[in-house]
Design a protein around this nucleic acid. Sequence first.
DNA 1: CGAACCCTTGAAACGGGTCAAATCGTGTGG
DNA 2: CCACACGATTTGACCCGTTTCAAGGGTTCG
Lengths: 247, 247
Amino acid sequence: MEENMIITKCTECVLRNNICFIKAEQEEIEFIQSLKSNEIVLDAGKQLIEQGENCDFFYTLKSGWAFRYVTLPDGKRQILNFLLPGDIIGMQAEINHEISHGVETLTDATFCAFPRKKTLDIYKNFPSLGYQLTWLVAHEELIVDENLVAIGRKNALQRIAMLLVSLFKRASVLGMLKEESLYFPISQQHIADALGLSLVHTNKTMAKLKTYGVHELVDSHIKIKDLSKVEKLAEYYALPNQKRPLL
Amino acid sequence: MEENMIITKCTECVLRNNICFIKAEQEEIEFIQSLKSNEIVLDAGKQLIEQGENCDFFYTLKSGWAFRYVTLPDGKRQILNFLLPGDIIGMQAEINHEISHGVETLTDATFCAFPRKKTLDIYKNFPSLGYQLTWLVAHEELIVDENLVAIGRKNALQRIAMLLVSLFKRASVLGMLKEESLYFPISQQHIADALGLSLVHTNKTMAKLKTYGVHELVDSHIKIKDLSKVEKLAEYYALPNQKRPLL
DNA sequence: CGAACCCTTGAAACGGGTCAAATCGTGTGG
DNA sequence: CCACACGATTTGACCCGTTTCAAGGGTTCG
């Protein structure tokens, strides 16, 4: 794991200037800074956490894309959810620190690492940060819930449409769009693994979605033409935006 | 919604005597008691939370079985997870209080209700309780994660085997077994809805599991003959027990 | 100029869905 | 005590969405 010991000042973190996050108090930010043990910079396609690893840290994704996944004994992979900047990573580890899923980057990415043994200090020093931690975990669960509903009860067309919309919206809120277009570092294999589909069927279904005029995917950049139309197709209605906490 | 205003003293709560829970401090228990706005007693098959409802409380399941679910526009239902005593309910609601899933009882059940607007007080007064809240949410996410992997990447036989094992183990830790046998208030329709299967196929697959000698289900009571054998069949290895928090 | 990834496409096989109907309690009302 | 409704479980037959197998093409990169 390549590590990089340059630590940005949290007060100067670009993420914090993003309007989609709740503004934190100066004091809180300084406290977070003091907890942060280092920043981890990884290239695309690298493991932040190995599945089954004992992990002494939890992380925040500062920049880039990543995903949580589980690999089964027979080699099949299930992606649990995709991670975008501001997402929290590794809180699902049980108290004994063992973590049952891996985390891998999709692009070059930077993570902020916090020692797990200091977690309780957050709650003691800044109760509202503790509250926000809970919120972040609960929010991630919501995303997994949505995914579960899609895989359990929707067909391939709807699942893919939904995944595209949901990622597009999440990225959009984060201000990651350029001229309606989103850099989309996710391969069809990733989509297949996230949605419980085979690669082949994913490919054919995405071709169909394209002919339906749902999306345009050129050179790893995606556009969604008519969001509300796609939401209807997918029977998926994203929650309205609201400011979210950032640890 | 039938409500019952009799409030048990938290210090005398039978759940707390259960050895699987972390012992709380007297002070903490009294604080929880002071937060608790009431106890809700429901018959089997009743809604604690209606899907899409604005919900001003979060809950703890004190006794009985319940489940979280989502119903799609076309009537299909996906069960997100089953709830057993000690589980927490409704923390996934976004800050605006809207909750995107319903909660329904499987048996007569009792819930402790806590006003959501006092949530932050927990963190302020008893940081460790806040920490435990996060733990509970993260733990639920773990269960949903496992479910997602099963639905996404396992066949019907494995999914059902896994669900049976996982419920059996959870209930077992809670001391709900009587002579190796567990009262099992879950219909095949519930299993189908939890695992993304049709009722018919669930029925046929469960028949197969029975001939394999995996389980015995008589009169709503289930026995699992050889747990480790079933775990191997399901490719599912439950996490080792550890004490868990109870709000 | 292979090696390693992606994305594509066609054909065949199958797991699981859908439809339809019978059986078996269990509880209710006459 | 019987008739009936209702819900949960079964079973059989057929169909279809998705998987699997196989192969070809495009691009990047050492």
